[in-house]
């Protein structure tokens, strides 16, 4: 086992923790955090695999991908937080009720 593999493994672990938390936590801030952890995991994996030939210069492509990815995930985070604040302002809630309630008209 070499160093990049080690980090790749860490990435997978982080991803799994993130996805788990993303699914079971209800508070939106926590979900956004979990999303970031997932992202970090994936990015770690991507950069780790850039070291395919030990010792040689890492492949530049994954680096570019990760950079783009970070920008994307920050945009998501930022937008998600704006949305959260709006929801809080409007409804006073910080967690999502189930969609069947928001579509609400499924009574007899």
């Amino acid at each position: 086992m070499n160093q990049p593999t080690w980090y790749a493994l860490t990435g997978v672990i982080l991803f799994s923790m993130g996805i788990h938390a993303f699914v079971i936590r209800t508070h939106l801030v926590r979900r956004i955090l979990a999303f970031n952890i997932m992202g970090s995991g994936v990015f770690l994996l991507l950069v780790a695999i850039a070291h395919r030939i030990p010792g040689a210069a890492p492949d530049p492509v994954p680096h570019a991908l990760v950079l783009t990815g970070i920008v994307v995930s920050v945009s998501f985070t930022a937008f998600g937080l704006v949305l959260l604040k709006k929801i809080y302002a409007k409804t006073g809630k910080t967690a999502l009720i189930d969609p069947t309630e928001s579509t609400s008209d499924q009574t007899n």
């Binding site: 970031n36 950069v47 680096h63």
Partner: peptide, 23 residues
Amino acid sequence: RLRAPDIALAEAAISAGLSGVLL
């Protein structure tokens, strides 16, 4: 550690910094 200083900078500035502030 993974010899990606460009990403390290970006991570520190954007991910930890910006996201942190927003959060």
